[in-house]
Design a protein around this nucleic acid. Structure first.
Lengths: 150, 150
DNA sequence: CCAATAAAGTCACATATGAGACTATCTGGG
DNA sequence: CCCAGATAGTCTCATATGTGACTTTATTGG
């Protein structure tokens, strides 16, 4: 029942990704009481600190209103902290707290394992090639999509 | 600002797909007054009629409650019609109406064009290879994901 | 044949999200 | 220097969605 659309490639990407992402994220939402914007904010901050809400919008594709709410909630839970940028008082620089990292560490292994399961059917070479093509697609995104479309 | 996660491939798929899908779908939602389950239901029915709500759940990855609401709404708008399956009275077989096809025809070209734009950076060979790998991934989904996870 | 279980679809409720207005701050051209 | 945008982030309101319970019908095993 998988086939049947005129937008084959985009559809198949969505099909595979939905099965990867939706159950995983719902589980995190339920068990840890986080929303999706909160989850991706922690993922991003775990990697790179001192970034702004806008950066997280661009990274995650979530709307700024939702990221804003997520950040407010995460601060309330003491999972991140924010400082106003001295060079531009509109901006707030975000930093993950130890509690934030600890929570991140609780849900990321399942996501990693599930990604491995998803990719298990590809050979090592195919996986590399798939990633190379994805990189190419990702680099190309700015050429056809405007950031303010999100 | 794109990098930074331990789940590289899934993340990149999400990144590219978000930029493809979200703006397109939101535009359809706003201009044509359809919800996402309604949009994908019409996409599926345009290809294959006489299917059930469950089939559309599997096809689209949407939850059955949402597909159910979508089908009720589409019927109200006379974009599809449903007949109880004589062989199993629990099931309802779905059929798209001419009005449904007409509406589908109004939004699919933009989706197709945007998919082309997304893929434009790949050579013909790369595109074929990308699709082959996606097919492999899609065929493999049942091995690691349960349908009832959605 | 009947009871227990499963499956298709619907519903009610709580919550997350999208749209767009709003505030505060910054920037660049007269 | 200052005013007209632009930009970062927040808020309000309406709507779409997730969850889980519920109804009806089918299937299976005793």
């Amino acid at each position: 029942m998988r086939g049947g659309t005129e937008i084959k490639i985009a559809y198949k990407m969505g099909y595979v990704l939905n099965f990867y992402r939706e159950p995983s994220f719902r589980k995190i939402e339920m068990e840890l009481g986080l929303t999706r914007p909160e989850i991706v904010t922690l993922i991003f901050l775990n990697f790179r600190e001192g970034v702004t809400a806008s950066d997280i919008c661009e990274f995650s594709g979530h709307l700024k209103a939702n990221i804003s709410r997520g950040i407010i909630a995460l601060e309330k839970k003491k999972l991140l902290r924010r400082d106003t940028d001295r060079a531009d008082n509109r901006r707030q620089l975000l930093f993950i707290t130890p509690a934030g990292r600890a929570l991140y560490a609780r849900y990321i292994p399942a996501l990693r394992e599930r990604e491995q399961a998803m990719l298990a059917c590809l050979t090592r070479t195919e996986r590399k090639e798939f990633e190379r093509l994805l990189d190419k697609l990702a680099d190309h995104v700015p050429h056809w999509a405007a950031l303010d479309e999100l």
